[in-house]
């Protein structure tokens, strides 16, 4: 009897509660991978926009991490500033801001993202909305002028205020937009490489897609989400073109604004999107439709931020309606 018990304890049975299959993934590993996927775009932004962009990103990250530390001290929780989630929130938020934003606005945004959007909801894993986009939306209503003042680097030392491609499209129309770039092919080239005006991290489509492909390869995000969201925007803008049906410029709309960074890095945030594959597809298509609605019919030139936040709202509903069948259940 005694021998039996000992053998049991040693190597035969480990009695534990489910889940029994564990994966090697952990929060820090995923978060730092996403951060790494953003690095190429960050380096490009630092080179293209220069010092103001570097300052904005630094302030965003530092304030986000500091806020996380202080709040976890106050809430008497474990300090988890090393898991990369606060760094990611701060960085993603800074990448959605115009490069010349005053530092205190960036700091206010980071504070809001961590304190209001994340910890007031219960902390990592409990937030309803994407913290980075909540911060952007709050900054947008708080300082509308500063948030829509875009500066372009004509030479490395000289800075002039110009509009983003989507702004030009909204205010002056498509022909004017093509003229600012010269011709359509150089416009596509600028949009693809990122040598255009816009928020710090949203311009370089190629580098963001590279980062996204890395995350898809690692299995942290599903390919359906970015492909469907960007695809929906492309198809709808092609159909509802400026000069009647099927006259739009889908390629421009797919590359413009914050769509690429939004589709790859915001709409795939594990906490704020539906759990099931079907739910994720509904989320991505819905966000795409809302983006097109805001871009073509709304007052704002860009709608990725609001469309993702609106879809965050309905995520619990989507989850309720696409409950997967239990294994072995009838029909």
């Amino acid at each position: 009897m005694a021998v039996n018990e000992e053998t049991l304890k040693m190597n035969l049975l480990t009695v534990s509660t489910s889940p029994h299959i564990t994966s090697p993934e952990s929060i820090p590993k995923i978060m730092w991978s996403v951060n790494a996927a953003l690095v190429p775009a960050v380096i490009f932004a630092a080179w293209y926009f220069g010092m103001p962009a570097i300052t904005t990103m630094l302030v965003g990250v530092v304030v986000a991490v500091a806020t996380e530390y202080v709040i976890q001290l106050i809430r008497k929780k474990d300090i988890t500033i090393n898991d990369g989630s606060a760094v990611l929130t701060g960085l993603l938020m800074a990448m959605c801001l115009p490069p010349n934003l005053p530092w205190y606005m960036t700091a206010f945004g980071s504070f809001l993202a961590i304190a209001v959007a994340k910890h007031s909801m219960g902390g990592l894993g409990y937030n309803i909305f994407n913290p980075a986009h909540i911060a952007r939306a709050a900054l947008m209503v708080s300082w509308p002028v500063a948030m829509t003042t875009w500066t372009a680097m004509t030479t490395k030392a000289d800075v002039v205020t110009t509009a983003t491609p989507l702004n030009i499209l909204k205010q002056q129309g498509y022909t004017q937009l093509v003229e600012t770039f010269g011709d359509t092919s150089s416009m596509y080239q600028a949009m693809l490489l990122g040598t255009r005006n816009g928020s710090i991290g949203e311009t370089s489509a190629v580098l963001l897609i590279l980062g996204g492909i890395f995350l898809i390869y690692k299995g942290y995000i599903k390919w359906e989400m970015p492909v469907l969201m960007i695809g929906t925007v492309g198809i709808l803008t092609w159909i509802f073109g400026p000069a009647g049906l099927f006259t739009g410029d889908p390629l421009f709309h797919m590359l413009a604004g914050g769509l690429i960074i939004g589709a790859f890095f915001m709409a795939t945030d594990m906490v704020t999107i539906p759990i099931t594959r079907k739910g994720k597809i509904i989320f991505a298509v819905g966000a795409g439709i809302l983006t097109v609605l805001i871009r073509l019919k709304g007052g704002y030139p860009e709608g990725v931020c609001y469309s993702i936040l609106l879809m965050n709202c309905v995520t619990p509903l989507i989850d309720r309606f696409v409950v997967p069948k239990k294994f072995g259940a009838g029909r």
Partner: peptide, 19 residues
């Protein structure tokens, strides 16, 4: 002092009353 407009708007009031 560069006041954030959000506090004057209803959204800011909602957040403030919540806290």
């Amino acid at each position: 002092y560069d006041a954030p407009l959000i506090l004057i708007l209803p959204a800011g009031a909602f957040i403030l009353i919540g806290y």
